[in-house]
Design a protein around this nucleic acid. Structure first.
Lengths: 112, 112
DNA sequence: TTTGTATATGCCTTGACATGTATATACTTC
DNA sequence: GAAGTATATACATGTCAAGGCATATACAAA
């Protein structure tokens, strides 16, 4: 089971996703737009397809690929836990950092 | 230059970031909480530190690590381009998917 | 049916990275 | 200073993924 994070770790894959965010494309279009070799594109598309990030419909010899944005939700959800740090005002961040600098009341590790 | 996406692609690294989101910790604390070996923790922390995701202060033999949340902003920013797909109402997504199904008025690729 | 176009796949090489074990370093306490 | 604690680093190893090239497959046009 490959994770969302593995998917978006690859730059070319991110580029493909970004491109598809603007509308569906054929393999050839992606190939030319992103200046990748055709096999490279096909392979990335396969990964993206099997992971549920894109889907394709057949048009004669062409395959038209289309984004399945829901798949990215998980990554966004994970980032949510950090969003509080930068969203809102700088103050919120500052207050937090401030808090971070004080010793937390956790179980003091050094048992010696 | 290692990217944000490479950083968060590693599960243990994500775990460390999540843990640090709740407050600063020493290496030993991380080690025990996440049940990783000490060298593993140190190595991931090194990567995180050099990439600007955490910082450490010295306390005798201990190093207290602390999150630098700003570093994650870039990932959040990248995801922003997809957020419109799922944010708001289902309608928004449906309308989009609908649009995606229609042939886009791009340069028809097949020049033959 | 031959030729061209569009996409997928197989094989191979290469490089990056995560981990484990062992060890070095620094500090502290006795 | 000797022994223990906390962390970093070196080295060796295994895994895995990305890319290149060649080729297979499917469809189309002539």
């Amino acid at each position: 089971m490959i994770s969302v994070f593995d998917i978006i770790a690859e730059p070319n894959r991110r580029a493909i996703l970004t491109l598809l965010a603007s509308g569906e494309r054929t393999v050839g279009e992606i190939e030319r737009r992103l200046r990748m070799t055709q096999p490279a594109v096909s392979k990335h598309l396969r990964v993206l397809r099997e992971a549920g990030f894109v889907e394709a419909t057949v048009d004669a010899q062409r395959r038209v690929y289309r984004l399945k944005p829901e798949a990215l939700l998980e990554a966004d959800t994970w980032l949510e836990q950090f969003r509080r740090f930068w969203s809102g005002h700088v103050d919120a961040l500052e207050r937090h950092l401030d808090r971070m600098h004080h010793p937390h009341p956790k179980g003091k590790a050094g048992r010696k």
